[in-house]
Structures are given as structure tokens and as C-alpha cells.
Design a protein around this nucleic acid. Structure first.
Lengths: 345, 345
DNA sequence: TTGTACGCGTTATCAC
DNA sequence: GTGATAACGCGTACAA
């Protein structure tokens, strides 16, 4: 049982006839090194299959090679996409991804986040919306010497610490498109107050209306909670207006699904009687009937870029901070008047 | 800038007038310790706000306080549920959760997993289906001295290293229920070959039929890939049989959604003309129209138990290994004949 | 019951 | 350019 152990830096040093420190320099690509020495050491490393011990490095550097993902998010698809994006970047590096679901209503939230970062000595941390909107959390991480990137739907931070989708513009364009294909009474389901994304999407909705020369009508605008039931309730409210909408933009897919249920409950045909656009492109969107037209964030790309900013803070500002969202056109939104134009049965 | 540092075990030892080792004993709850000494040291710890350095411990113990979650592409809802369940257990411990999405078709899969566990010196690792079905991966982890728990749909391992749902029984009961409420022609969409869950659900389907005294009819049984499109195709096949089914059990929700689309495409009413039961209770199930009757794993509880087995290997065998799934009754399955019994419009 | 001395594998300091 | 030597903070023989 003498040498079943993994080789250490000492073994490399001994076998290549140099000091530990020189080996360390090779590993860390120190520029001031004799080329011959470097090659000699590298040969031994390859021969031994030596891999530096991350725990020892963490101790010496007082910093772990861990990227933290902190979120409080009901959308599984998004979290999974983010995790895959981060992995795309850190695969083949020595970094690993540590996740931390938290409860944003917890009174100890800030302390929890601090402890987490401190205990694990995270290298960098990424916040997902809506947590990313909280400046106090980002500040806590910074105070601990941890690089931060926030994912959001607007300019929450400077380019080096942000990956964002321009929700306002994306929604505006979607609404303009509805107007272009003939809709004049376009309803709106807002997200909950206090969410930046909700505010951005609402602003985008008003922008779109304005660009199309339409006037907002409060009787066909309402607010939900981003949850299914609230979409159902919103649908009831909108569809019982004196002059109901012929199209509705919902601030997320789940509420759009609720709206579809409300419409069907009243015997309305979607999209024949009512066109609907959602936001998120969750799994629901593609699988519901009718398939939902929706706005999609390039989540995986955004997360991959975010991870890159975290592990290479030096060049973070040079990488993109804003990402374009796509309008995914499916069957739930068609030109008005819909019944005749519809090929839906 | 002299003492902004976090206090170390040395500080605690000095201030409480004992040795490092004694402090170490207090931290690790050693039984052989004078009560007075312990209290004295604990007071100093509380006073200083001392927190043991995980990196130093990892180095000394050659083992990190990290739980790994390795998975391929099950649905986002499941991964999120698992992460929350694990967190339920490790919150307020010093453990953290590190995740690793992998590609099960990668030729370097086994090596990737080995490197991951080795580099991070994981304390324990959890495999999600379908990766959990691979004995070679579990073996690699064990060889590295890492505790393993596998999540699955059948007895993949002994009780100390398993959390499983009894899919076979759950599906059997669902099918028996369909028979009880009058269905005689019950169709089936199997999952892909090579998935243990698919095999278990198929066995459960046949069990249920047998218990109800019905004979399997190959013309209304087909196989999908667990993906939406395959559900659509399966629907086309089943519904164009000479004698189509009045009810169908789909091996997951996503294929059930495809089946619903196929039925609607043919002008059939669900559940009026066709009852459908799915499996998973993903977000789609509750939000699709009609809301889908489906089988649900108690994911979060299972994952929480799994984490407990990982961080307390000693008592792992004493904790439950099998968990009951629930049949969530929604609107997509009703008694036969459906049209008259249906209150669906 | 408690303390001493040393190991864990790496990086940092500061000579040479 | 390179190498002794000391951190980094904690656990463990072994001794007392």
C-alpha cells in the first residue's frame, strides 16, 4: 500500500530534479522560466499523470475553484438551461458548479448567502432573477472578494457583471407584430409588482402599442403573479370586459396557459377567437394546445457567457452583456380577424 | 489590517487556554471531553464567531464536504426538485451541492465522472435516471471511496444506496383503475428500450391488465422515445388502429401531451372520446388542456432521503429505499363511455 | 482527559 | 531563473 496514492508536486519535483516551487511555476504558467526546465518538468508531469490537488490549492490561495449559482426560481427549464450553459464553459477547467436554491422571503436570506459564499470560499457567484435584482446580495458577495455576475432582463449592473436580455425591446416588437397582423384590441397580463422583468415587459408592451399608434386600454390590462391560477383569473377578467381583446400578451408562459384554459372554459377558440403570446418558451409552450407563440431568452448562451466572465474577470467587460430574444412563432397567434384566416379546426 | 482575518482554531485555542486538539475535539463532538472544558471552548467559539475552514479540513481529511449530483437530461422539473430535496437535508450542515450535467452518449462518460469525483474529492454522489441504471458509474464512484446513492424506478441496488419509486406497482394500479371505471380497450405508449423505467412501466401495464382480466392487444401498444414528437406519432398509430383504444396509458407526460395533440388533430375530444393517463406530473401536466391525470414521484422527499443516506452512510440502510407514487386525478381520464359521463364541453 | 509534533499538498517570500 | 522555508488551517498519532 505504499504508492497507490496520487502523485504530488513533491514526486514531480524529485523525479525531475527541480524544486517544488519550480513545478508550481510550470503548473501556473509563470513567464519567467527556462524553456528547457519547463519541458523537462512537463514530461514528468505527463509521465506520472500528475494532477494538482484542488483542496491544497484552495487552502493556500484562500479561494476555492467553485462557481456558485444562487437562485429562487420556479422555472425548472431555466435553471437547467443555466446549469448547462455554465458547464459548457467550465468543462475542461478545474472549476465546478455549486448550486444553492434559496427562499427569497426568508428573513435570513442575506446571511444565508454570506455564509454560503464564505464557507465555500467561492471564486465567483451568479445570481438569477429575481434575486439578481437585489443590490444587497451582490454587495455581500463583492465584500467577500467573490466575483459576481447577475442575470436579468435589464441593465442591473455594468457590462462586466451582467448578462441580460432586453425584455422591453422584445415585448415591444412582439406587440408591434400583433398590430401588424391586424389586431387593434390587444390585452396585457403583467407580472407581479416588484419584479424588474415585469416592469420591463410592461414598458415594452406600452412601447409596442405606441409604435403601432394604439392607445392603451386599462379595461383589458391586468396583473398576475406569474403563476397559472393568476393567468386563469386574468383571463376571466379580460374576457369579461365590455369590449374584450382579440389578442393578449401574457408576461410569461404559465399565465398564458391559464389564459388558454379560461378561454376554452368560455367556449372560445384559440387562436380563432383569441390570439395569445407568452414569454419564456418553457416546455409548456411547445406542448400545450395550441402550441404557444412566445418570446425566448437564449438562456444557455447567456449562462455560458456569464460563467466566462466569472472565471476570467479580466476580460469580463469585453464580453457581451446584452442578448437578443427571439419571438418563437407557433400556432397561438394569427392575423385578425382570426376565424376566417385560421386553418385551425 | 492586522486582524481582519477570520479567527482560526489557533485563536480559539489560545483564548480558551487549551490546545488546538481540544478545540478540534469540541468541533467534532468527541465523547471523551470534560464537560467544563467543552463549555469553555464553546463559549469562546461563539464569542469569536469562529467557523472551521472547510478547505483546510478537506485537505487534512482528503475528502471534501461536497455532495455531487450527476445527471443526464431528465426534465427540468425533476432536477430542480431533486436539488431542493438535497438542500432540505444539507441546509445547516457544512455540505454543499455540486452539480454535473453530463452527456450519456459521450464516449468519455466514465472517465468524466471519475475525474469529477476525484478532483473535487466528493464526499458522496447521487445519480439520477437513466444514468443511475449504469453499474459501471456507481462502481467508479465506490472505487474512489465516495458514497453512492442511486435514484431509480426499481431495485437497482441495496437499500443503503437506493431511493426508488415502485413504478411497476403504480402503473398497475393506474391501469386497474381505468378498467374499474369501464375501459376495456386500454392502449399503451412505452418508453424507449434500454431505460429501466420504461421496462418497469411496461411490466406494470401488463400487470394491471392481467389483474383486471383483460388481454393485451399489440395493435394498441406502441413505443416512444419519451419525447413529444414520439407521443404525437404514437397517437397517430394508436388512433388509426382498426379498433382504437378508449383509454391510453403513456409512459410519461410529454408523450401524453403529444398524444393529446394527435387526438385533437383528428377532431377527437379528450377525455370525451379518449381518456389519457401520463407519468411524471411535470408542469405540463397541470397546465395542458385538459389537465392531465398522471402518476407522481415524491421527488423532493426521495432526494432529501438520498442526501441523508449520503452524509450519514452509517444509518443509510435504516432509511426508506422505496417510495409510493401518487395517481394525481385530473380531467384527462373519465369513466367509459365518456361522452355521456363527461361534464366537459 | 489533554497536549505535542507532524502531515496534508499547494502557494508565497525572499534570498541566491 | 531557481530553491529553501515558511505559511495556509485542521486532523491524528502518540505521548503525557
Amino acid at each position: 500500500m505504499a504508492k497507490a496514492q496520487n502523485p504530488t508536486i513533491n514526486d514531480v519535483a524529485r523525479l525531475s530534479g527541480v524544486s517544488k516551487k519550480t513545478v508550481s511555476r510550470v503548473i501556473n504558467n509563470s513567464p519567467l522560466l527556462n524553456q528547457a526546465t519547463r519541458e523537462k518538468v512537463e514530461a514528468v508531469i505527463a509521465d506520472l499523470g500528475y494532477v494538482p490537488n484542488l483542496q491544497a490549492r484552495a487552502l493556500a490561495l484562500r479561494r476555492n475553484f467553485l462557481i456558485g449559482l444562487i437562485h429562487d426560481n420556479p422555472n425548472g427549464q431555466m435553471v437547467l438551461g443555466v446549469q448547462e450553459g455554465i458547464l459548457d464553459t467550465i468543462r475542461n477547467t478545474e472549476f465546478a458548479l455549486v448550486v444553492r436554491p434559496v427562499d427569497r422571503y426568508s428573513p435570513t436570506l442575506v446571511e444565508d448567502v454570506r455564509k454560503f459564499i464564505e464557507q465555500q470560499r467561492l471564486y465567483g457567484v451568479m445570481f438569477l432573477p429575481p434575486l439578481s435584482e437585489r443590490d444587497d446580495l451582490a454587495q455581500v458577495a463583492r465584500d467577500l472578494g467573490c466575483t459576481v455576475v447577475r442575470m436579468g432582463s435589464a441593465k442591473l449592473d455594468d457590462d462586466a457583471h451582467l448578462v441580460a436580455s432586453n425584455d422591453r425591446q422584445a415585448v415591444s416588437e412582439a406587440v408591434e407584430w400583433l398590430a401588424q397582423i391586424g389586431h387593434r384590441r390587444i390585452g396585457f397580463i403583467a407580472g407581479p409588482e416588484g419584479f424588474r422583468s415585469a416592469a420591463e415587459r410592461e414598458a415594452g408592451f406600452l412601447d409596442g402599442l405606441a409604435k403601432a399608434g394604439l392607445t392603451p386600454d386599462p379595461t383589458i390590462m391586468t396583473r398576475g403573479t406569474y403563476r397559472f391560477e393568476s393567468g386563469l383569473a386574468a383571463g376571466e377578467a379580460l374576457l369579461s370586459a365590455k369590449a374584450p381583446p382579440t389578442a393578449v400578451f401574457s408576461s410569461n408562459d404559465v399565465m398564458a396557459a391559464g389564459l388558454i384554459h379560461a378561454a376554452k372554459g368560455r367556449g372560445l377558440d384559440v387562436p380563432g377567437d383569441l390570439s395569445i403570446i407568452g414569454f419564456d418558451d418553457t416546455a409548456i409552450a411547445a406542448h400545450i394546445w395550441p402550441p404557444l407563440t412566445t418570446v425566448r431568452w437564449p438562456i444557455r448562451t447567456m449562462a455560458s457567457t456569464a460563467a466566462s466572465k466569472l472565471i476570467r474577470p479580466g476580460s469580463a467587460a469585453a464580453e457581451p452583456a446584452f442578448f437578443l430574444s427571439d419571438l418563437i412563432r407557433r400556432a397561438s397567434a394569427i392575423p385578425y380577424p382570426g376565424k376566417d384566416a385560421s386553418n385551425d379546426r
